[in-house]
Computed example of a mutant assay.
Amino acid sequence: MPVGSRNETVAGSMPKLVAYTIDGHAIDIRPAPLERDWMDATDQRFAYRCLPLNIANAHGWELLCPSGFSARWDGLNHKETVRVKADLGTHAPAASHFGHGILTFHVPCLFRTDPGFDLFVTGPINRPKDAIAPLSGVIETDWSPYTFTMNWRFTRSNTKIRFERGEPYCHVFPVERGALERITPEVMPLSKAPALEREFKLWSEGRSTFNADLQQPGSEAAQQRWQKTYFRGVNPSGEEARADHRSRLRLKDFDEKD
């Protein structure tokens, strides 16, 4: 789709996300992986049993640092109070631009989405980092000719933080503009949805029994180790919940075009 195009997406065509790199720059971007170091380190990798966590991990694309650097904030508000030190022989991909303990990455490209789609820009999902936290934004990338920055805010002063070469510093995914505003939120008693209530009670009772049986060596629950009904996309009654249930995302790599 050409930059600046306002034409409707052709019916039946595949939606696109294009990263137009600024001349003289390069971008290292990849589908966000499922794996996380801290999840690998959990006992028997139990963190991967949480399907919502797995799906969120891979829900978009990650931008990677072209070089490593360290930074420190002294707790004051002007720009000079964030000090960035590039690794030897490299140029740091982040700088102090706004002050107030904010570290800024300049993203070297213009993203373009299909008409009616914005780009949600945030930090790497489920990758906590000590002493600094990512800030999020939503950008109208179906028309905007403006670059954006990825910003992190220090949460503790006088603490050195570090980004390694190849470490994700930004996570992006398209969202349909106005979709949230079309939703009508409601609150009502669970008893008003008898089929849902029935499945919930089956799950709740089964969960209590399963957790009790886990303490019994050799029990079926101890052999299973965890309940997999949500992971498999079935209700507690055994009925398939949704034909389009996902247990893994498989996003495409960015193709390089001349």
Rank of each mutant, 00 (worst) to 15 (best):
V18C: 11
Y20C: 05
Y20Q: 11
T21D: 07
G24H: 07
H25Q: 12
H25N: 13
A26H: 09
I27V: 15
I27A: 15
I27L: 15
D28Y: 15
D28A: 15
P31R: 05
P31Y: 14
A32R: 00
L34A: 06
L34M: 15
E35K: 07
E35R: 11
E35L: 05
E35V: 12
R36Q: 10
R36T: 10
W38E: 12
M39A: 11
D40Q: 12
D40E: 13
D40Y: 03
A41W: 06
A41R: 08
A41S: 13
T42W: 03
T42H: 03
T42E: 03
T42R: 08
D43E: 15
Q44I: 11
R45C: 11
R45K: 15
R45Q: 14
F46V: 06
A47T: 00
Y48P: 08
Y48C: 04
Y48M: 05
R49I: 02
C50Y: 10
L51A: 00
P52E: 04
L53T: 08
N54S: 10
N54L: 06
N57M: 09
N57L: 12
N57P: 12
A58S: 10
A58T: 03
H59Q: 08
W61L: 01
E62D: 15
L63A: 05
L64C: 06
L64H: 15
